[in-house]
Design a protein around this nucleic acid. Structure first.
Lengths: 403, 403
DNA sequence: AATATTTTGTTTGATGAATTAACTAAATCA
DNA sequence: TGATTTAGTTAATTCATCAAACAAAATATT
C-alpha cells in the first residue's frame, strides 16, 4: 500500500483497486468485527470483490478471521477483525523542553514510552536525540514497523518531511524526513504538533461519523491550532495554517518577541498565565500562591492548576482572562470558516470548565447570533498523548488509508 | 457527464473512465489548441486511450479539430480545440436590489444580459421574477443549455439547491434548485454570491496554475467572503463559510441589526461609507459632496466614487477607515488559514488602491512578520460580472469537470 | 425427519477501460 | 530515394469489477 492518489492525474485500474482495498480495510477498522457479506452491503461492492481483497488483507496479516456470528437464518457469516497488532508505530512529540516517544499498535494503544530531556540541546545535537529516541523504541519493537510519525512545534512541510523552521530547536530547512528514512529505512511522516493534535481529535473522536471539519486549539507555552477539512489536515499555502499564536488580540497588549503588541500567545498562553498569576499572587496575601510568588520562583502552570483545584479564588480571574482572549480569536475562526466543532487541548486544557466557559462566552458574544447554537466548543478528551496519537493517525492515514 | 465522485465510496471502472474524460477535457480547455500526442504526454495516458476519449468528445461536439500544426520532423499533429460554443449557460446574480441574468458560452463570454428591478418584490413574487428572467434568457439561446447557475446573498445549501435563508429576499428553506429543475429540465446550481465570486477568481484568474487556495472578500452593501481550498469552494458545516460580515471588529462600534456592536458590515460596507461620508461632507463645506449631503439625500457610493476620482480630499480618510477594519478582519483569516492570495471585490473595490493600501497596511501590521512577505492582496480584476462568472464556473465544474 | 428456504462465501465466465505493440500516414533528414 | 521521426489508429492483452451459478451451513416448514 502506498501514498494517496493525487487530484489532477490520470486514473488507472490499479488506483481503483488500491482505493477499494483501503476503503475495505477502513470499513473493517471502523466496524470491527464484520463479515464479508456485511462489507459487501456497506461498500456496495460485490461479495466476489470483497472476498478477493480480503484474501490479500489476510495474507498481509492486517485482518484476522475471528469465528462465526449467529444469525436467525442462513449460513453463519465469518467475522473479520482488524489486526491491530499486525504492525507497530513509532511516534514522537518534540515538545518544548523534552522529547517524548511511544511505541504503539495500529489502534494507537501505547505499549512503551521513552522521554529525553533536551533543555539546551538544539540544532544538530537535537537531531541526535531524535535518532537516539527512535533507536531505543525500535529495539523494543516486537512487530514489523509501519512507520515513524513525528509532531513538532514549528513550520513543517509535511509531504517532503522538511522542517522549514522550528525556533525552539533552532532548525531551519532541515530535511528530517529524508534523514530518518535513510537511517531507518521506514516511512517517516512529520507535521506540526497542533495540526497533528487536530488530526488525532478527528480520528480518535468517538462520534467522528458525522464530524468532517474541526478546529483544535492547543494552548500551552505556545498557542497553535490545527484545522481539519473533510478529514484531512489543512496545511495552508506556507504550511502554517492554524498558527494563530501571533494574531493580535489586544493592540495595546504586551510586546511579543515577534515585534507586535498583544499577540494571542503573549496574552493567553501558560506563560502569560504564570506572569499574571505571579503578579496577582504577590499582591494578594490570601492567595495560596502568595509565598511561592514572593519567593521569586516563577509560578509553574502545575502550581497554578493545583491551587485552582484547591479552590484558590485568585486563580479563576486569571484563567478567565486567557479564556476571553482565546474566545476572541476563536470567534474569528468560527465566523470565517463556519466550523461547528472546536476543541481545546494542551496543558492549559487541564483547567477544564474554568477555561472553557469564558471561551464560550466570548465566542458567543462575538459571533453572529444565528450561528451561535451551531457552535460546539469542548475540551479535548485525548489528554497529554494527543500529539503522538496524531502522529500515529498521520502514519495510519498515509500507509493504510485509515481516516 | 455527471457529478463528481464522492470520497468514501467504492471506486469503479466507470468512474475511472469518467475521471479521465474530464481530465482530458480540462487539459484541452487549458492548453487549447493541443494535439492528441501532446495530451498523451501531459496526462501520461497512452495515445490509444486519448484517441478513444477524444472521439467521444468530438461526438459530443465539445471539441473540434482545427487543422494541423507545423513541427520540425514527423507527421504533423492534428490540433484539438475546446468548442466554447458547443453549449450555453444561463447565469443569475440575485443582488440586493436588482436581479441580473446572462447568457454565456463555455468560456464565460457573455452574449446577452437581462436585468430586472425587484425593489419590493420578496418571497414568492421574487421567485416569479427569477423564472421570468430565465424564460427570457432561454428564449435567446441558440445552443443547447448546459445548465443554470445562480448566485445569491444568503445561506445556501449548494448540493441540494436549497436557499436556507436569504434575508433580503425573505426566503427560507426554499428548494429553489428543485423548483427550477422541474420547471426547465436543466441542471441548476446555486451558491452564495461571495463564494461564487471566489470560485470565479480561481477559475478565471490568469495565473491559476499555481494558486490552489484563495480568499475573496466581497465588499458592497453587505460584506462576505468566499474561500477556495484546493480549487473547490469551502462551504463550512452550515454552508456559511466566509460570512465575515458580522465578525465584531470594534466592540465599541455602532449597533448592528444582528444585535452586536461594531460588526464588520456596520463599520466597513458601502452603507457605512455613505453614512460616514455624509457626516463629514456636511461638516466640511469644501467637500465636493457638501451640497448633496446637506440636501438630505443619502450619498450613494457612486457619488462618493466620483468625488474620489475628482480628487476630493475628504473621501480618502473615509475609505481608509473602511480599509483598516477590513484589514483587521482579513488579518485573522490570513493568520488562521495561511492563505497567500487575497482578493477584494464588490462595488467597494472600485476605489482601487485607495482601499487596497490601508487594507494591506492593517493586515501587515497585525500579521506574524515571517508571513507578511508571503501575503498577496489584490483588487479582483473580474469587475461587476464576478458573481455570474462564478455561477458559470460552478456549472462548468460540476457538468464538465473544468476547474 | 425430510425438504425448502435463506444467507454466506467461492468459483467461473463476462465486461470493459487502459495498455502494449504493431501498423499506417506524413512529414523531415541524409 | 530511402531512412528516420512523429502522429494517430487498430488489434490483442491485461486485470479489476461484476454477474451468475454453485456449494456450504444454518433455520423454517411440512
Amino acid at each position: 500500500m502506498n501514498k494517496v492518489i493525487s487530484a489532477s492525474q490520470k486514473a488507472t485500474r490499479a488506483q481503483t483497486k488500491e482505493h477499494n482495498k483501503r476503503f475495505i480495510l477502513k470499513t473493517i477498522y471502523e466496524r470491527d468485527p464484520i463479515s464479508r457479506a456485511d462489507l459487501a452491503r456497506l461498500t456496495k461492492l460485490t461479495r466476489a470483490s470483497i472476498s478477493n481483497v480480503v484474501a490479500a488483507l489476510l495474507e498481509e496479516n492486517l485482518v484476522h478471521e475471528v469465528g462465526l456470528a449467529k444469525k436467525s437464518v442462513g449460513k453463519p457469516p465469518t467475522l473479520l477483525s482488524f489486526n491491530k497488532s499486525a504492525r507497530q508505530l513509532i511516534t514522537l512529540d518534540l515538545a518544548n523542553d523534552q522529547f517524548r516517544g511511544c511505541l504503539m499498535n495500529l489502534r494507537g494503544d501505547i505499549t512503551d514510552r521513552v522521554k529525553i530531556s533536551v533543555e539546551e540541546q538544539r540544532g544538530e545535537s537535537a537531531v541526535d536525540k531524535v535518532v537516539e529516541l527512535i533507536e531505543e523504541l525500535k529495539a523494543k519493537a516486537t512487530e514489523p514497523l509501519l512507520g515513524i510519525g513525528i509532531g513538532t512545534p514549528g513550520v513543517i512541510e509535511p509531504y517532503r518531511g522538511v522542517v522549514k523552521s522550528a525556533i525552539n530547536l533552532n532548525w531551519s530547512d532541515l530535511p528530517l524526513g529524508d534523514m530518518l528514512e535513510e537511517r531507518f529505512d521506514i516511512p517517516v511522516y512529520i507535521a506540526n504538533d497542533a495540526q497533528l493534535a487536530a488530526l488525532a481529535q478527528y480520528l480518535f473522536s468517538p462520534d467522528k461519523e458525522s464530524i468532517k471539519n474541526l478546529i483544535l486549539v492547543k494552548v500551552g507555552r505556545g498557542i497553535g491550532s490545527g484545522i481539519i477539512f473533510g478529514g484531512e489536515i489543512f496545511f495552508g499555502d506556507g504550511f502554517s495554517a492554524g498558527e494563530i499564536g501571533h494574531v493580535v488580540v489586544d493592540p495595546n497588549g504586551k510586546l511579543c518577541t515577534c515585534g507586535h503588541n498583544g499577540c494571542l500567545e503573549t496574552m493567553a498562553s501558560t506563560r502569560a498565565l504564570s506572569e499574571q498569576m505571579t503578579q496577582i499572587a504577590m499582591a494578594n496575601p490570601s492567595s495560596k500562591l502568595h509565598d511561592k510568588a514572593r519567593a521569586g520562583h516563577p509560578l509553574h502552570s502545575n502550581d497554578i492548576l493545583q491551587a485552582h483545584q484547591e479552590k484558590d479564588f485568585t486563580v479563576q480571574p486569571v484563567i478567565e482572562r486567557s479564556g476571553r482572549f482565546l474566545g476572541g480569536a476563536i470567534a474569528h475562526l468560527v465566523g470565517a470558516m463556519n466550523i461547528r466543532h472546536i476543541y481545546i487541548a494542551g496543558s492549559m486544557a487541564r483547567f477544564g470548565d474554568a477555561l472553557l466557559e469564558p471561551i464560550r462566552q466570548e465566542v458567543f458574544r462575538r459571533s453572529y447570533p444565528a450561528l451561535i447554537n451551531q457552535i460546539d466548543i469542548e475540551i479535548s478528551d485525548l489528554g497529554a498523548d494527543i500529539v503522538v496519537l496524531g502522529a500515529a493517525a498521520l502514519v495510519l492515514n498515509f500507509e493504510l488509508g485509515i481516516v
